[in-house]
Design a protein around this nucleic acid. Structure first.
Lengths: 339, 339
DNA sequence: GAGTCTGATGAAACCGGTTACATCGGAGGA
DNA sequence: TCCTCCGATGTAACCGGTTTCATCAGACTC
C-alpha cells in the first residue's frame, strides 16, 4: 500500500537503484556469466532492497514460451482420474524446481472438451498439454502441431501422440481368467454404454478382452448377462439388480471399474446375495476404495501413470517429440475378499 | 509447419488483412461500441480467415491484471480436500464463461506452503488466491495486501481474510451428543497430533468440542482414551489397537476424520470387536467413502464449500473485499451403521 | 457556404521483461 | 606508444496486446 498502487517495482527500478541498465539486471537475474561480480552484488542488493520480483507474464511474452502446462481432466469423474492427477501434480508442481506451473482445465460436459482444447492451444499460455482420459480428434492434433504445442495423453491413446496407457483388453482377459480359475462359468458384466458422449472406450475394451477370454474357455458371454449404463455407483446397483433377478443369475460379475463394482456389491447386499459365495465380484482400477472394501480387482498403477505422463510431457517440451512412444503399464490381479 | 514457425498471427496481421489499424482490431475484439458495423465485419472476417486467436499473455501484461486465479492445495491429502476442490473447479473453470483460469499449486511438504504463497503473490500472474486447508500467517497476509491480491480461505480461517469454514468445535460436540444419546459413557478419541507441521487445527478443534460436550454430561475424556498420530488410515488402525487393548477399552470411538474412522473400523475388525455392538464408531467429513462403508459421521458440505469459496473469490476480485466475511456452514449428524 | 461538433479511426506509447548489437575502456602485443 | 582485441555494460528494439490522444471526415447549424 502507500504509493505503489498494486504494481511492484520493475526491472528498471532495480536498474536505477543499482546504477546499471535494465539489461544488466536481466542478466544477473538469469545468471548470465557476462556480469562481473561487483556489479552482480550491487544488483542483488538492489533487488533485495526493493523487494523486486520477476513478472512471469512479461517474461513469458518476451521469451515467447510459457512456463505453464495445461492439464485437461474430466475432474468430476472417478477416483481413478484423481489418483492419476495426483501423480501429475506431484511431478509437475511439487518437485523442488517447480519448473512448470499447472493450469487445470476441468471438462464437465462433452462439449467443453473441444473448448478446452481450443482455448489452451490457441491462447498459447501453456508450453504443453496433458490430456487425461479424454479422446482427441485428428483435427485437434493438427491444430496442436500447427502451433508446435507438445501434448501427451494419459489413459487414452492416439498413434500420433505419446501416451501412457494400460492394455484394457488384456485387463479384461485377466479378470476372466481369474473368475474362470475360481470355477465360475456363468458370468455377468456391468459396464459403461459402449458408445458414450465423452468417447470413453476403456469399459468396452475391458469387456472385449473379458468376452474373448471366456470364448477361449468355451464360454459365451450372453447378452442377457451384460448390463450397460453410466459409470456410477447407483446405476451399477440398479443394473446389477436386474442382472441378479433373472431366472439363472450369474455366479460372478465383472464390473468395468471399481466404482461400479461397489454398486454391484451394494446390489448383492440388498438382494441378500452373499459375496463371494453366491456372487463373486471383480472390479478394475484398484483405487483406494477397493482396498478399503476388500474388493478383488485389476490393479493398474494410477499414480505412477500420472508421474510418467508428466515426465513425458516435460521431455517433449524440452527436447521435442521424436516419435510418439506409447508407454503401456503393467496390470495385475489383486485378490481380496470378493472372489 | 510452413512459414508461421510456431507463432500465430498477431493483432497487427489481422489489422493489415482487414485494412485497419491494430487499435481498431482490439476494439472489435473487446466489443467496444466505437467501431462502425462494416468495419467490424471486415475485422471479423479477417480474424476468421487468419484463424487469429488472442494472446492471453500479452493481454494480461497490457491490462496489468491476470485472468487466472491461484489455488493452493495440499493435494496429496484426503478425499475431503479433493471434494472441496471439485466444487472450486466446477465453479471456476467449468461454468460456461470460463472467466478465470485455474493455476493449481500443490503443497506436498510444509516448507512448500510458504514458497507457493510467495510465488503466487509476487509473480503476479494471478488475480486472486484461494487457499485450501492451509493456515496463513500475518506477514503473508501483509504481502498479499501490499500487492492488492485478494485471497479467500477454505477450511481454515483468519480474521483478516474472507473464508468458508465449519465450526469444528461444534462438530465435536455433535459427535459427543450422538454417542451420549446412544448410551455410551466410556468413549475414545483418535485424531491428529494437536501440533503438526502443517498447522492443521481441525482435529484438535473437534476434540475440544467433543471433550467439552462430554464434560457437560459429567464425563471426562481421560488421556488414556485419547490417541494421536498422523492423519492416515494405517496410523489410525495402530492407534485404535492400542486403545482397545487396554484393561477397560472404550465402547465408542470418535475419529477426527472419516479416513481415520476407516482405520478404526479396520482395527476393530482385526481385533474381533463388533461394530456397533462392541464398539461404536463415528467419523467426520462425510466423504463418499463414509457412505460406502456405512460409517456414521458428521456431515459437512464439502463440494458446496468449494463452490462458495470460489464465488467469494470472484466477488473479491471483481468488487474488492469490503469486510472479510466468514461463511460458516452447517454440520449435521448422518447416522449409518457404525453407531 | 463557413464554422463547429461529433463519431470513427489511426499513431504511438506503454505494460515489463529479453537480447542483438553498439560502445567503451583496459589489457596485451608489436 | 599505438593498435587490436575482448569483456563488461548500455541502447534500443521487440514480444502482442490496450489505450490515450490526435486526426479527419461528415453532419449539422446559422
Amino acid at each position: 500500500m502507500g504509493t505503489t498502487r498494486g504494481r511492484g517495482p520493475t526491472i528498471r527500478d532495480v536498474a536505477r537503484q543499482a546504477g546499471v541498465s535494465a539489461a544488466t539486471v536481466s542478466r544477473v537475474l538469469n545468471d548470465s556469466p557476462l556480469v562481473v561480480e561487483p556489479t552482480r552484488a550491487r544488483v542483488r542488493a538492489a533487488v533485495d532492497e526493493l523487494g523486486y520480483r520477476l513478472n512471469a507474464t512479461a517474461r513469458t511474452l518476451s521469451l515467447g514460451r510459457a512456463t505453464a502446462v495445461g492439464v485437461v481432466v474430466p475432474f468430476f469423474t472417478t477416483h481413478s482420474v484423481i489418483e492419476r492427477l495426483r501423480g501429475v501434480v506431484a511431478r509437475l508442481s511439487g518437485g523442488g524446481q517447480r519448473a512448470y506451473d499447472l493450469l487445470l482445465y476441468d471438462v464437465e460436459a462433452p462439449e467443453q472438451r473441444a473448448d478446452a482444447m481450443r482455448d489452451l492451444a490457441d491462447r498459447n499460455r501453456v508450453a504443453g498439454l496433458l490430456i487425461v482420459s479424454l479422446p482427441i480428434f485428428d483435427d485437434e492434433i493438427d491444430a496442436l502441431q500447427r502451433d508446435d504445442l507438445p501434448a501427451v495423453l494419459l489413459d487414452v491413446s492416439h498413434p500420433r501422440l505419446p501416451g501412457v496407457v494400460v492394455d484394457n483388453v488384456r485387463g479384461g482377459e485377466l479378470a476372466a481368467e481369474h473368475l474362470l480359475a475360481k470355477g465360475h462359468s456363468h458370468i455377468g458384466f456391468v459396464g459403461d454404454h459402449p458408445t458414450n458422449e465423452y468417447g470413453f472406450t476403456s469399459s468396452e475394451d475391458r469387456r472385449r478382452g473379458f468376452s474373448s477370454a471366456l470364448d477361449r474357455a468355451g464360454i459365451r458371454l450372453d447378452p442377457s448377462m451384460e448390463r450397460y449404463g453410466v459409470p456410477d455407483r447407483d446405476e451399477a446397483d440398479v443394473l446389477t439388480r436386474s442382472l441378479l433377478q433373472q431366472p439363472a443369475p450369474p455366479t460372478a460379475i465383472f464390473a468395468a471399474s471399481d466404482l461400479q463394482a461397489i454398486g454391484v456389491l451394494r446390489a448383492c447386499e440388498a438382494l441378500g446375495a452373499r459375496v463371494p459365495d453366491d456372487v463373486a465380484v471383480i472390479g478394475f482400477d484398484d483405487v483406494d476404495l477397493a482396498e478399503i472394501v476388500g474388493l478383488t480387482t485389476i490393479h493398474q498403477p494410477l499414480r505412477e501413470s500420472g508421474e510418467l505422463a508428466a515426465d513425458l510431457l516435460v521431455a517433449a517440451i524440452e527436447h521435442g517429440v521424436h516419435d510418439p512412444v506409447q508407454e503401456v503399464q503393467e496390470l495385475t490381479v489383486v485378490e481380496r475378499r470378493t472372489t
